[in-house]
Each structure stands twice: as structure tokens, then as C-alpha cells.
Design a binder for these strands. Structure first.
Lengths: 134, 134
DNA sequence: GTACGTGCAAAGGTTTTGCATTACA
DNA sequence: TGTAATGCAAAACCTTTGCACGTAC
């Protein structure tokens, strides 16, 4: 939670609970996932509040909005450059540390101004490999 | 259109129009984009038919469903392994030929069974660079 | 002729918006 | 105290589904 202490947003109990859930979370939760967790402590919690808080965090660069899951947006509190492994069966998203910067062709760099880039690798996670017939 | 000739699906006039639009198309259109184009020739065209046809093509491996755009799915008739440049301003998606296979860390390959992987590079396209203050 | 595609309408799921109430700073 | 967050409901989107009718093969 240290990292969220001075991010310049009003810290309500609901927001603290959201930040508590997100800090160090590597599960890449959806808004609904966040809502489910925070609802335990705040039964009157609203999904709209979750979305609103996530929007603020995204704007402040404290979370990334992932567009990997075709069904819903997912959020990642790990904002340093890294890559993702996605299980085609259970949709689990696993972090893959960035080994080195991705090299892009020279003519690409000259045309586009690249801000960030990452790798998405799709496959089957250890748990699903055992049970699923691909 | 050659490539779609023998893909084993009933070829209705509507579907031929969709295939005509997709073949060689590098704009990564959404279902709505496809619908807009095909509607010109078939005013009674239904969005549901577009979605249904895209689902069949996806199943047959003739198009890829891209989850890059947070607002809607987009489709790519180029199914060979390649990467994407995404303009953060106009959301244009540009193909980037795959130079070599992406190397992943050894321990990742041992755990996950990787099926495919690609790079997503975000930045500003030449047109937007000129007009937008980043 | 039959299985399958089409088109319309309705429903489903996620995300956004409006607004009155509440609470942080 | 004033500005901003919360919570509820409704709306906005994209996408899917059900069903009667029509058509490719």
C-alpha cells in the first residue's frame, strides 16, 4: 500500500479497500472481480464506484487497462514494462518479466513514435494442460 | 478472393460481399465497419449476419479476432504470424511483419505450452504526430 | 429437399452517465 | 465548508440469441 499513499486522490475507505486489493495483485482482475472483493467489506459498494476509481488510477498511471480478454477489461497494478502469458483455456493471465527491450525494425521506429510495447503469448497453462484435450 | 473459394461454407451473396471486403484488407475493421461496407450493396443486410459470418471465418481460421481495441473487437484477414502497431490517438492498427520468432525465456516455455505470440507496440502514427500534442 | 443462412427483434453483459446524498480534506 | 466521491438507477454500447422465412447446394 505504500506506493498508493501519495498519489493525490481523495482516499475514502472504499478506495483504500480497492487499493488494498490491487496492491501486489497479479491476477489481472476485472472491475467485477474488484467489486466482489470490496463488497465483502462494504456491502453497499457500487460497481460504478469501482469503475470510477479504476478510471482515476488509470489516468494517474497507477494501473494499466488490459485489452487482452475479449469479454471484459482487466486491470494490472504492475505498471512497469512486462509481458503476458494468456491461457487459452482458463483465460488466466500471467506476468512474464521483460527480459530486454523489444527490438522493432528501423523503418517502423522512424515512422511511428513508439511509446511502449509488449508481447502477448497465448497457450495453455500447466493446470489446463493436464485436464484439457487441445 | 481466391483464398476464400474453397473454405467449405455456404457462399451466399452477403457472405461473398463480406469476403470481398475482407480479402487483402489491412484496416482491421470492426463488425460495424464490415456492416457499413456490405450494406451499400445489400441494404437489408443485418449486423447479426456479419457477426455470424465472422464467427464462422474465425472458427475456420480465416480471420483473427483482435482484442486490441478496448471498445470493440476488430478482425484481421491476415492470419500469418505478424505484429501490430497501434496509434494511441486515432486507434489505427498497422501491420508489422514478423521479423523472427519471438524468443521467450526457457522456464516460460517449459511451463506454458505456447501456441502463438505477437508484439503490440503503442505509439503515434505519422499523421497524428503532426497534429496532436502528446 | 434439407440443412443452413438471413434478418428482425429482443436479450445479455459490460461500461458509462446523471443525480441526489454523503464525506473527505 | 466546499469540492469531490458514493450509490442507485437508467442508459449506452457491443455482441449474442431465438425464431420465422428464404436460399445454396
Amino acid at each position: 500500500m505504500q506506493r498508493f499513499r501519495y498519489i493525490g486522490m481523495k482516499l475514502t475507505p472504499q478506495r483504500l479497500a480497492i487499493l488494498d486489493f490491487l496492491d501486489g495483485n497479479t491476477s489481472h482482475p476485472s472491475a467485477e472481480d474488484v467489486f466482489q472483493f470490496v463488497s465483502k467489506r462494504f456491502p453497499t459498494m457500487s460497481l460504478a464506484t469501482v469503475y470510477s476509481t479504476l478510471a482515476v488510477l488509470k489516468k494517474k498511471g497507477e494501473v494499466l487497462e488490459l485489452t487482452i480478454d475479449p469479454d471484459k477489461k482487466r486491470y494490472d497494478p504492475e505498471t512497469s514494462e512486462h509481458h503476458h502469458l494468456i491461457c487459452l483455456s482458463c483465460k488466466r493471465i500471467v506476468d512474464m518479466p521483460s527480459e530486454r527491450r523489444i527490438e522493432l525494425p528501423e523503418r517502423v521506429i522512424q515512422n511511428f513514435t513508439i511509446v511502449k510495447s509488449h508481447i502477448e503469448a497465448y497457450g495453455y497453462c500447466p493446470a489446463c494442460k493436464k485436464t484439457i484435450t487441445v
